[in-house]
Write a protein that binds this DNA or RNA. Structure first.
Lengths: 105, 105
DNA sequence: TAGATAATTAACTATATAGTTAATTAGTTA
DNA sequence: TAACTAATTAACTATATAGTTAATTATCTA
């Protein structure tokens, strides 16, 4: 939980997540979308990995990163549910999504 | 948005929000629940204020703090909605809560 | 009004974070 | 195998963050 919110507290990292929301990207493709250096990006990716918000697989010399949506949703809802009873419906919603049984309406 | 996630990235501040989820508390009552000094707590409260997650009113020499639930929910959902289409139902749910029209089931 | 209490502000310290450039590791290809 | 490319690690710097104690401001009460 700590690592998730820590990860989300950076604008750069939230942008990375946004880019990955549509498709997976290589480290280099992500870096191209920012002004900062590749090593700096690499560290941001590492923070997101440690938080479990993204995952990677190496294909040849490229490392592909993709969003772990379920973890993002689960973390947010676990958090919200602690703060008010009204949070419960959100948790149920999240559970449905997590189970992959939800249509897109 | 930046200030909200920055605020949420601290365990102490998330605990403060949790304490305030049930009732409003004075600065001193909050400080009593932590090991850190009152000035340190005061700064955490200030961070939460700047993020719009809590609000205060002064009654005599006491300052009462309370959670702004709607802002917490709205921020989280605004964020989630950007990451996946499945987020939309959460947003709708949140809007209902915000409008204060939702029963507690 | 003098003293006590609640809270914040000021000044400071230690550590964590985010960035840099240079070096390294691993994989590809001429 | 030599050179190139992708990515990460290493070493370092500057700034932000979280804490401390001491001082200040505001309010209450004997």
């Amino acid at each position: 939980m700590e690592s998730v919110f820590q990860a989300l507290s950076s604008t750069v990292r939230r942008k990375i997540l946004a880019y990955l929301s549509k498709t997976s990207l290589t480290a280099g493709e992500i870096a191209d979308r920012f002004e900062i250096s590749k090593p700096a990006l690499s560290k941001h990716l590492n923070v997101l990995m440690n938080a479990g918000l993204i995952e990677s697989d190496k294909q040849g010399q490229y490392v592909h990163y993709r969003l772990v949506k379920n973890n993002l949703f689960a973390s947010m809802n676990d958090f919200l549910v602690n703060f008010c009873p009204e949070g419960r419906p959100l948790k149920m919603e999240s559970a449905e999504i997590e189970a992959g049984k939800k249509s897109n309406n």
